[in-house]
Write a protein that binds this DNA or RNA. Structure first.
Lengths: 205, 205
DNA sequence: TAGATTGTTAATCGATTAACAATC
DNA sequence: TAGATTGTTAATCGATTAACAATC
């Protein structure tokens, strides 16, 4: 099925399904059902079956879904059956925390470079990487054909850096800066902001 | 209007409106319109007017919305016209990055304690705070009547710690651990996971 | 076979949008 | 007054769910 026939809200749930399947696999399960997934994720089983049906029939009536097989299929669908090189912009506390995070690689992403413009930080080690000058960004992006970036710079620098990323051909930005980025429609932004989450929950307090 | 008549998806957007209004205020604007907000946020103006209308009429026909007034109203609606004390669990890289983040306080939240169970970390300084033993958590939560927690511990510890938080009466958890937490329906969880964001965008690559 | 669970359809439910009277 | 923009209604659109035939 062609990509843009799938509602975005369905795509939003696929990574959650994938994560849950990998969790069940770690529990040494081999088979699951739409009902089990639904219970664990707080959704309805019909929704899970419908979501999956946009991409094909991955289960067996009477049995359910083979976890390994469904993981493999979801990885293909999400394009994480390969590893994407990622540029990390910003070597502050947050940038360093992200650089140390071990969970990216097995989920389809590898940090290949970390950048900052503070002379003091350039050259210092962060995990396996060394902080590079922002001036090196265009060369690295070109050489490694990087299409994904993580933006972990202060709010006042974010708009400028984002424009630069777009100019260099980055088409997916994981944005940790607390501002709404303005990018062309062909560039995806996924925004992570703890304050938004806290304020959301505060409504219900 | 009573709280549970407002769709969750509307509440999800309110913090975004608030953040954008504060951004416009920083640009020295005093007045805005549903159209301007919509353009900046990539939504429709009708949606913004409808969302706000769940809570009251905050604008003036022919003029728009007074930014300061609407900020004040949204803060009240979201219950961030006060400051909530927050417990931060986990003093790893991520915990430290969060502890150093300066943006919480003016948005309604103040980190009042940071906990870890690693003897090496206990007592060390992180920003203005000193890392405390997890054993102190119950006392602190009780003494300060803390209702909000940020969970920044490794995946394998998250379920246990979350259960503890629930037991202590925490009712909002900002979860940075890459697992789906199982909590009672009266407890809110807002999940932040960079991998979910990256995988989501990878679908469109 | 009996029991279980999928994939799919049609019905329901709910969210978004278009349109406009009200009014600043 | 003329122009602009709100708040609200009704229509549209799209997502979720219920139900069940198919089938393992």
């Amino acid at each position: 099925m062609s990509q843009d026939q799938v509602p975005e809200i369905v795509v939003d749930r696929l990574p959650l399904y994938l994560r849950m399947l990998e969790f069940l696999k770690k529990e040494d399960k081999a088979i699951t059902s739409s009902q089990e997934l639904a219970d664990r994720l707080g959704l309805s089983s019909a929704q899970i079956r419908k979501d999956l049906s946009y991409f094909g029939g991955f289960g067996k009536q009477g049995t359910g879904y083979a976890i390994d097989y469904l993981i493999k299929q979801l990885r293909q669908i999400l394009h994480v059956d390969r590893v994407w090189d990622v540029a990390l912009i910003g070597a502050g506390d947050l940038g360093r925390a992200l650089a140390h995070y071990q969970g990216f690689e097995q989920q389809g992403f590898r940090l290949v470079a970390i950048f900052d413009n503070a002379p003091k930080k350039i050259g210092t080690a962060v995990g396996d990487l060394h902080v590079q000058d922002m001036a090196e960004l265009p060369r690295l992006v070109r050489e490694k054909t990087i299409r994904v970036a993580i933006l972990a710079v202060p709010a006042d620098a974010a708009a400028t850096v984002a424009a630069k990323l777009v100019e260099l051909g980055i088409c997916a930005i994981l944005n940790y800066a607390p501002i709404t980025l303005n990018v062309p429609p062909n560039v995806r932004v996924y925004h992570i902001d703890p304050v938004i989450g806290l304020q959301n929950m505060a409504y219900y307090l």
